Structures are given as structure tokens and as C-alpha cells.
Amino acid sequence: MKLDEIERLKIEELSSYSLEPWEFEVGEKYGVKVEPRKIKGTAHPSYMKKSLFEAFNSLKRGQSIVYNYILSPDYYNNLDLREYHRDKLHLIYKMHEDKYYISGDGNHRFILSKVLDINELIIDSVTEYNEDLKLKELLQQLESIGFAYEITVEGIIVNSKYLEIELYGNLKSVLGSFLKHYINLNTSTINEHLYRLKRYFTKDFMQKYAYSKEIMDICYYNFLELMKHKRHYS
């Protein structure tokens, strides 16, 4: 191996793989031709965030993988030879990045293909993902104003050290509405005093909003907590 090739292995790093909340599955493709240079990351903790040089030298069965490649190099680009092999090659493809990721088995073979700079692999199956730009924008905006979140089957839980709010319904719709009301929230001292007086003197004031799913009602019910949060992160 030439010196410049060794340098390439030391520089190129396998990034860590994970799916973002705004990324969604598009579909599955079979018998896909892939350039190993486009495989950019792995979910395996033993190899992620390591250079190719480090990853290759830490392969648990590195010698046997190299030996098997010498015996049968066509395994990497011939599906017929792989038909009866128990281990199929699978990758995740993020369309918006034009990058592939190792999400399960095959780290040894994929890392070897990158080290050897093989021109092309035939992958048994590839799961494709794309991103929802609007949802990405909303979730990143939520984080930028100090909120953490947990996406649930029914909607989303928004929380900080001051409060926890459950929002039910279409994710983009309820998030957009919540952020709009939060941004327009009047946190002046006068408004705070008026709220406290109304809550104290008006019968069943809080019960009116306690079980409502309307975003405006939810924000009003949690007004004091949202006010503290907004003052802290303003």
C-alpha cells in the first residue's frame, strides 16, 4: 500500500449513524450498485468516529475477512454468488445527503471495501430515507428557544426545567401553532399580575383550560411557566 493511500485511511473517518426525527423512510431497493466511497458512517460503536485506518485495525475478524476476499473477490459485486450466503449486505441511504450508512451487519466487509478502494459493490437491499424540511425547521426552532422534546405516537411532549406540555395531533400543525403562541406570549409584569388576579378571583378559571387540547388554551393554562421560560431564554 502506497504512503498516500495510508494517509487517506488515517484522514477519512466513519461518522456515527442515527436517524433524525424529521427523517422518514421512502422505500426499499434491491440489488443496488453502490460506490464504497459514499458509505460515510456506521451505527456500530466499535467503529464509529474512527478513521478507516483505526477501524480496519480494530476489526474483530479482520484476517478472515481479508482471506475470504482473496478467495472470492466477486462476492462483493455478484448477487448470484451471495444468494445462498446467510449474511446479506444491507445499507441505509439518506437521499438528502447522498450518503450511505451501515445500520447493522456487514461492518467488516464494508470497511474492507473502503480500505481497498473497491469501485463498486452490489448491495442486497438499501432502505432509503428523506427529510421533512418543515418539520426539521420547527424542531430546530423549538430547540433554539430552550425546549427539549419527545415525539410520541399521539404527538409531542415539549419540556424544559420550568414545564412539560403534551401536544396532541399532527406534529407540524401543533408545533407550528405552539411556537406561534409562544413567540406572541406577552410576558410583561402587568400581564402577569392580571393573570394572577383573574386566576385568584374568577371561579373555575383554571378548570376552563385544564383539559383542553386547543394550543391557545394549553399555553394560557401554562402561562406562568411559559413566562418563566421565555424570560430566562430571551
Rank of each mutant, 00 (worst) to 15 (best):
K2T: 08
K2S: 10
D4R: 12
E5P: 00
L9G: 10
K10G: 11
I11M: 09
E13N: 12
L14R: 10
L19P: 05
P21C: 08
P21D: 10
E23A: 08
G31I: 02
K33V: 00
V34A: 06
E35F: 01
P36M: 00
I39K: 07
K40Y: 02
G41T: 01
T42D: 06
A43L: 03
A43Y: 13
P45I: 03
S46F: 10
S46Y: 11
K49M: 11
K49C: 03
K50H: 11
L52M: 03
N57A: 01
L59S: 05
R61M: 04
G62K: 13
Q63A: 14
Q63P: 00
V66E: 02
Y69F: 15
I70V: 12
L71N: 00
P73D: 12
D74M: 11
D74L: 14
Y75R: 10
Y75H: 15
N77C: 07
N78A: 05
L79V: 07
R82V: 00
R82I: 00
R82F: 04
D87K: 11
H90P: 02
K94D: 02
E97H: 03
I102W: 09
I102G: 02
I102L: 08
K114Q: 09
V115F: 01
L116W: 03
L116N: 06
D117H: 05
E120M: 08
I122E: 14
I122W: 06
I123S: 14
D124C: 08
L139V: 05
L142S: 08
L142F: 04
L142P: 03
I145K: 15
G146S: 15
F147V: 10
E150N: 11
I151G: 15
T152A: 13
V153Q: 15
V153F: 02
I157W: 05
V158W: 05
N159V: 01
S160A: 09
S160M: 13
K161A: 06
Y162C: 13
L163K: 11
I165N: 10
L167P: 11
L167M: 08
L167G: 09
N170F: 04
V174F: 08
G176K: 14
S177V: 00
L179D: 04
K180E: 15
K180Y: 13
Y182A: 09
I183N: 13
N184K: 13
L185A: 12
S188C: 11
I190D: 09
I190C: 01
E192T: 03
R196T: 02
R196N: 07
L197H: 07
L197A: 12
K198I: 00
R199W: 03
D204R: 13
F205C: 04
F205P: 06
F205K: 05
M206Q: 14
Q207R: 04
K208C: 08
K208L: 08
A210K: 15
A210N: 10
A210T: 12
Y211T: 15
S212H: 04
S212R: 10
K213G: 05
K213Y: 09
E214T: 08
E214Q: 11
D217Q: 00
C219M: 14
Y220C: 07
L224E: 15
K230P: 00
Y233V: 14
S234Q: 14
